[in-house]
Amino acid sequence: MPKEIIKIEDLKREFIMGPETVHALRGISFTINEGEFVTIMGSSGSGKSTLLNILGCLDQPTSGIYEIDGVKMKDLTRNQLATIRNEKIGFIFQSYNLLARTSALENVELPLFYNSKVSSEERRDRAIKAIEMVGLKERMDHTPSQLSGGQQQRVAIARSLVNNPVMILADEATGNLDTRTAYEIMSIFQELNKQGITIVFVTHEPDIALFSHRTIVLRDGNIIKDYKNTNVLSATEELAKLPKQED
């Protein structure tokens, strides 16, 4: 039986906006096993980003249980949560969130700065390895403003990888990218997933969901569908099928 890595039960998240209470998540439950590649789908306002933020320990649920590896997140202090984020989770944002005027390599190194177990030589080696993995070794001295959107997102992926996380959470990671670049990014995710990293991917584009094993569909804070994907497409193959770019 595969190991459960994420378990949520009756998870609710409410936002109080003045006199109104917005129910972003209305009590959802599921489990994700180690090595799964899950996409969370839904239109905007369905609560998918809220869910991902809670999974990434960036936000706290109003009620309900969230466990990573059997540890209840509710019981942890802010510092312990920071350590979980640092050591177990790689988070990728739609808007990349790279530090401006800072080289790609230094951006990738960032999480390791907060891990006192890693020496400065090891930090550099691991950052270079991660940046190689996303194919940006030649550009590691470039700052974000000198990189294209796709390249910036690859730097962000390298940053999420550098701590050898158990899972990578991506929030609309391809949302700002054209189809070709999006497929390139997806092929990197598929490659990482093959290496055993659990991936939870939030998107509103159905074609992106075709690259994952499982899709959870949210609407208005509830799960309306949760199904296994029988015909997983290979992003690398799909990329090859795209019309050649004229450059």
């Binding site: 960036l58 802010r78 510092n79 984020r85 969130n97 960032l110 999480p111 907060y114 940053r159």
Partner: peptide, 16 residues
């Protein structure tokens, strides 16, 4: 503030 958020997202503690 955004940078602070990012630093915390990748594992920076409040005290850091």
């Amino acid at each position: 503030t955004k940078e602070i958020g990012l630093r915390m997202a990748v594992g920076g503690k409040g005290s850091d």
